[in-house]
């Protein structure tokens, strides 16, 4: 069959029928899968229509002119000299300070917690389950929710922001530290213990040196990501640049809003590159 020349004028209906019987897929998908495809497509389409109706999506297009109004106001920086630069820069620094303080404190507390949550340190399954669930609880609620709660508990200001970052990060870092501790080499621990060292000394000299670079690098990464997150904590009153941003949005000072966003982007980019450089140095040194 393969070495014969196929002549189109000699193909008969019987040939076609035979080929169709042999290779049904070459003649298009079978009816069943085609029907299935259509049903799924129609269901997806009607679901999207439902969402369109649920959120009144038409307004995206009818309100677009209002977006242009904001954008036009945002790019007009003719009042630049009159903005309160000192206040804005101070708030930006406050945001970075909040991120640094909250993350570092969380890291310091997370080290012992990480040891408590690691399987090779505390073998008790019940205990580990409980500590892990506590970490999950801290992590599961967003930083912004914690901020809102702490603003209510300790009042407006950066302290609420620091506490929110601290609690949310405690969950993240303790979990990561516990996992890092669980993946350490067992042999070094055995070696130190063979010299008759106490349990604490064994952890100090066998486990800590293995995980410390990992811990520091993870903390640096968290500082980096928290300085990004901390910029919005002020929107709920927890201090920092977000507070200034929220004031400017409320009085429709769109030019300054754009300026603050640019400030945030520059600061975040600076911290990113600084922390990346430090982390690379750390990995090389270790």
């Amino acid at each position: 069959m393969s070495d014969t020349t196929i002549r189109l004028d000699t193909i008969t209906a019987a040939d076609i029928a035979a080929t169709r019987a042999r290779l049904p897929a070459a003649f298009g998908a079978p009816l069943r899968s085609r029907a299935l495809r259509w049903t799924v497509g129609l269901l997806a389409l009607s679901y999207l229509l439902y969402l369109h109706w649920l959120f009144d999506f038409d307004r995206v297009f009818t309100n677009l002119p209002r977006v242009w109004v904001i954008v036009r106001l945002m790019v007009d920086w003719s009042q630049f000299a009159e903005w309160d630069h000192a206040e804005l820069l101070r708030s930006m620094a406050e945001t970075v300070a909040m991120a640094y303080l909250g993350t570092t404190l969380a890291a310091l507390v997370a080290v012992p917690l990480g040891f408590l949550g690691a399987r090779n340190v505390i073998p008790s399954r019940v205990f580990r389950f409980l500590t892990r669930r506590i970490f999950d609880g801290c992590r599961g609620l967003d930083q912004l929710i914690w901020a809102l709660v702490f603003v209510r508990a300790v009042g407006l200001g950066p302290i609420a922001g620091v506490l929110a970052i601290f609690v949310a990060d405690l969950g993240v870092l303790a979990k990561m530290f516990a996992e890092a501790i669980e993946t350490t080499e067992r042999k070094q621990l055995d070696g130190v213990q063979a010299t008759g060292a106490s349990r604490i000394a064994a952890l100090r000299y066998a486990v800590l040196p293995q995980v410390l670079p990992v811990m520091i690098s993870q903390t640096l990464y968290q500082i980096e990501s928290n300085s990004r997150e901390a910029t919005i904590l002020g929107l709920v009153g927890a201090g920092g640049i977000g507070l200034r941003l929220s004031e400017r949005i409320q009085i429709n000072a769109w030019d300054q809003v754009a300026y603050i966003i640019v400030l945030i982007m520059i600061t975040v980019a600076l911290i990113d590159s600084l922390s990346k450089a430090l982390r690379i140095r750390l990995i090389r040194g270790a």
Partner: peptide, 8 residues
């Protein structure tokens, strides 16, 4: 410094 800055 961060603590001083944030009244913490």
């Amino acid at each position: 410094i961060a603590a001083a800055y944030t009244d913490f």
